[in-house]
Amino acid sequence: MSDLATTVTVIDACGRAAVPVLLLSDPGMGKSSLVRGIATAEGVPCETVLGSIREPADVAGLPLVTDDGVILSPPAFARRLSAEGAGYLFLDELTTCPPAVQAAMLALALDRTVGDLTLPVGVRVVAGANPPDRAADGWEISPPLANRFCHVEFRPSVDEWLDGMTVGWAAPPASRAITADPTRIEAVKAMVTGFIRHKPEHLHAFPRTAEATGKPWPSRRTWAMLAGALANVRDDDAAARQGITFGLVGEGVGVEFLTWCEQADLPDPAAVVEDPALVDWTDRPDRVWAVLSSVVGWAASAGTVEAWRKAWGPLLAAAEAGAPDVSAAAARPLAACRPASARVPAAVRERFAPVLAAAGLSTAGAA
């Protein structure tokens, strides 16, 4: 359970990365009031959809025959949000939705697709749910739907409730989320990929019990969502980092990941490119991989010939320091993102000839 300010931060950070959030609590905790309050504070609309009173076509779109063929006409709430260009879509009482409606929500939750309409990037998806045994005619959340949300336990403290009663629910705490720049986004991706290289068994771990399938668990999708959302919180914001991590990949794996991140202490990829000697290339292979992965991501994000050529420096340094396998693994994606006019440095051609040949760069001129 997080404090209210952390919950608002998690919702904001996830929203910036297009990651939907699921607020879980007993009935009457104020989930819908919080979401409406955030929307009011931001000056954007909030549309609430009760899946328990909807048919699948109300969510997935109603088939209509037109002169151009059959289309899936989006419902009114989707058209209103699309017209505004921003806002919150609140899927309330998710555990009262029958399986057919939950299935219709799969594309809506993560891709913000309603019928033939894709909602604007400014629309954020938040859901609310009670435990199935405390919901009216409760249903367990299906594994595919559960795996599309960041799960957040929501139980405001007495003081937070008193503050809401005093100042009004339309004045939620300020978010601590940040706007990630491309370098930070790539650095966080490197943390995630470095951990998975260290613990590949955690890439996908479908729960062993039926109850756990409706909760957060690690999959290829949730790791990608985690990388996007974590980039939008500060490294020193332990509460928000924990809330996002536990909410997407579960507590057990989440503890391992956060511990690994703390121990890895990865440097800025731009600094590594300028001076590869900053890194001990004889360090653990998983840490070396994470550093090189962040360098590759930095070069891919920059998209320039200069950045691409300079990014080979750390890979060469790692290979010469005794980590040729790790550097070769990082060379594959770097070779694949070569700008059209970039020429492969001569030293790179000599060291990574097989990798370059596999990427179709063996005939590219050296410089």
Rank of each mutant, 00 (worst) to 15 (best):
A347S: 04
R343Q: 15
R309D: 11
L89V: 04
H151E: 01
Q263G: 10
N130V: 13
R309Y: 05
G164M: 11
L258E: 09
T9A: 07
A146K: 03
G214E: 09
D92I: 09
G322A: 04
P63H: 01
V295T: 04
G168S: 01
V253S: 04
A104V: 00
A18W: 07
D116A: 06
W281R: 04
L62K: 00
V59I: 09
W289D: 14
E251V: 09
D163G: 09
A227V: 11
G122W: 07
P269E: 05
P314F: 00
P27N: 12
K199G: 10
E55P: 00
L117N: 05
R208A: 11
V355Q: 10
P98W: 02
L110I: 13
V126W: 01
V49N: 03
L258R: 06
A238T: 09
A329P: 11
D116H: 01
I11V: 11
P314K: 01
E306L: 12
P216Q: 11
G37M: 06
E93Q: 10
R332G: 07
P20L: 05
A224Q: 15
L108C: 03
Q263K: 14
M165F: 09
G164W: 02
A366R: 15
L278G: 10
L117K: 06
P207T: 10
A335M: 12
W217V: 11
A86R: 05
A135K: 05
E251K: 15
P324M: 07
V121Q: 12
P267R: 15
P99N: 04
Q242T: 14
S327G: 15
A238Q: 07
A76V: 07
D92R: 13
G243K: 14
P75K: 02
R80Y: 15
T166D: 11
A329R: 05
A39S: 08
R351K: 10
V253K: 05
L64R: 08
G85K: 14
S157G: 11
V344E: 15
A357M: 14
G313W: 00
L91G: 02
S362Q: 11
G168Q: 13
T363E: 10
L91Q: 06
L316F: 00
R221Q: 13
R234Q: 08
R16V: 00
L108F: 00
P45H: 04
D12G: 12
T6A: 06
A129N: 14
E153G: 06
R155V: 07
T245K: 09
R332L: 15
V291L: 02
L4K: 06
G87N: 07
P173K: 14
P200F: 14
R351L: 03
S25D: 10
T259M: 02
D58E: 01
G87H: 09
L50P: 13
I178P: 00
V249G: 03
D235V: 14
S362K: 06
T213P: 12
R234L: 14
E186R: 08
L278H: 09
D133N: 06
T166Q: 10
W312P: 00
L108Q: 03
V8Q: 04
